[in-house]
């Protein structure tokens, strides 16, 4: 464990908590893409199948349980409890356009052709693009609530910090996973446009409005 990865995990945790707080306090899922949350749930389910078979550390297990339960809870809140506030008309990104290419790529490009490894690889590829429905929805509505933009900033930062973690592990632990690194770079790059808007607008106290 290194500081980059720990802070990255805490940013990830903060993002998920921020999202749950937003939903619970505003009693609304307005502006949230249920499809992205479904994809994140799928990322955790396919990545943490080794939760009971491969013990890494208490920290690792506790975080996996939290990420799994919170992502499933978020999908539940969006599609059942606060369904009335779910803006399905703007959440129209076709998930199959992400699921199928990620599945095919995971079968072709992986470290080992075994079910667990292919599912892990699928979850890595899917996580890189899972935010697209949410970013697409914001581009359609042209705006995002401030707390939603804080959520996105924390979520984008987490994988950016993981890139620093991979650099650190490459130089000091001689540990390098090309699949995770390439997917992580793609994932972080997808947030760059949002990061620019967040820093130039939200941090100036303005609402996140996309140029129409």
């Amino acid at each position: 464990m290194n500081a980059f990865r720990l802070v990255g995990d805490l940013c990830h945790l903060a993002a998920i908590v921020l999202l749950l707080l937003k939903i619970w306090k505003s009693r609304s899922v307005a502006g949230l893409s249920g499809k992205s949350q479904i994809l994140f749930g799928l990322v955790f389910v396919t990545r943490y199948l080794d939760l009971v078979t491969n013990f890494v550390s208490p920290y690792n297990t506790i975080m996996k349980v939290f990420f799994l339960s919170s992502s499933i809870a978020t999908v539940y809140l969006i599609y059942t409890k606060f369904k009335a506030t779910y803006d399905g008309n703007h959440d129209t990104f076709r998930m199959e356009f992400l699921l199928i290419p990620c599945a095919l790529l995971a079968i072709v490009v992986n470290h080992e052709f075994s079910p667990m490894e292919i599912l892990w690889t699928f979850s890595i590829y899917l996580e890189a693009v899972a935010i697209l429905p949410q970013l697409f929805m914001i581009s359609k509505t042209g705006e995002a609530e401030t707390i939603t933009s804080h959520y996105l900033f924390a979520l984008g930062s987490y994988r950016g910090l993981y890139i620093m973690n991979w650099l650190y592990r490459y130089y000091y632990e001689n540990n390098f996973d090309v699949i995770a690194v390439v997917a992580g770079i793609v994932q972080t790059v997808l947030y760059c446009d949002f990061f620019y808007l967040y820093i130039t607008k939200v941090l100036q106290g303005k609402k996140l409005q996309l140029p129409a």
């Binding site: 990830h12 690792n60 990420f67 470290h111 080992e112 490894e117 892990w120 995770a180």
Partner: peptide, 10 residues
């Protein structure tokens, strides 16, 4: 061949 990865990251 790629050695088997022990995925120790979240």
């Amino acid at each position: 061949t790629d050695e088997k990865f022990e995925h120790d990251e979240l």
